[in-house]
Design a protein around this nucleic acid. Sequence first.
DNA 1: TCTTGATGTGTACACTTGTTCACTAATGTG
DNA 2: CACATTAGTGAACAAGTGTACACATCAAGA
Lengths: 193, 193
Amino acid sequence: MGAALALVGKGRHFASLGIREVTRQAGVVPTSFYRHFRNMDDLGLQLVDELGLVLRRMMREARANVLQSDKLIEESVGIFVAHAQTNRNFFMFMAQGLAGGSRAVQEGIRSEMRFFASELANDLRRLRLMDHLSDEDMNLTCDLVVRTVAFSLTDLLSVSPDDDYQVAQIRKRTARFLQMIFVGAGHWRSDGA
Amino acid sequence: MGAALALVGKGRHFASLGIREVTRQAGVVPTSFYRHFRNMDDLGLQLVDELGLVLRRMMREARANVLQSDKLIEESVGIFVAHAQTNRNFFMFMAQGLAGGSRAVQEGIRSEMRFFASELANDLRRLRLMDHLSDEDMNLTCDLVVRTVAFSLTDLLSVSPDDDYQVAQIRKRTARFLQMIFVGAGHWRSDGA
DNA sequence: TCTTGATGTGTACACTTGTTCACTAATGTG
DNA sequence: CACATTAGTGAACAAGTGTACACATCAAGA
């Protein structure tokens, strides 16, 4: 799995990886592959599972560091960007899987995102933010937030992680996107405005 | 190019297509490929060009049909969904290229999206909508709108085009996303709210 | 210490792949 | 008509691919 991620990190698309290629990168003979996975799709699914863990770690850290701050959005985006950089390959895999890849992988990533959005909704409720929103509209909002961040991920991954200026630019832009969404949510009338 | 799109439409990822595979689908001998393209990346780039045409056609139709209506958002989303269905393979290719694919293809698609967003900004200015936004914030808003629609594209493409219920659901949800964004933009103070 | 389960190895096979080259059929322009 | 350009063909080659099978290594538990 590490080898596959490494190749993805080098710019290859997961869908184009072959068994031999992956095992070669792993420094292992091709037949060994079958000891762990039935095929590449299987490998992809296990990567999605592990991606789930990464996302959960990120969420935990966000929750711990963002409680008391009034700069909730900037902080959260900052944490997201930091995690995306340290787990760059994982997030590349995720971005790739959002649209392409096997049906199953795509569905897996999508479901991780749904989970993430619903956790975000819980947190906002707990912090008594956006209290006027119906449950449905709260989910709508959080879904939109998660999508926006996910899209920013593709921006982030398309620039060098060392290009501090561009990274800061993306961070700022993402934060402003979220601000605009929350302004919209703040003025949203759940009874059909 | 049609053959490549057809394969993408069948669920294969563009990045995983090979020359022989494409020519086979095209009913032509592999060597013929080189009469038209230097390699698969080249094919991808030409597809991006043609995608640009498709998007422009869509824009023209949206402009023609949406002028007088007060349901601007719903209408526009409807037109988008309709085009996404009739050019399903093209839009699949686009969705795939958003995150993966070769650097050049990705940059091409991204630049189409930027163009689209700036055209949208022009239109809104011309209709004297969101007049209080600075140029920069107008661009921000339109960029967010285009991203949101692009993400909805991935939803749309992951359900059967005949599943009218799900398609309608996605259309409604997308429209509400956009409404929320525009509510946010409407209350946005360009001097740092 | 012997057994067992998990992991890795080496060889083999039948296909598929990208690309080359010289050749042929079709097309439209002078 | 003749001619030049464009598109398609068929054979060939070295390299890479997925997968099967029998065998080797090794850690852990009895």
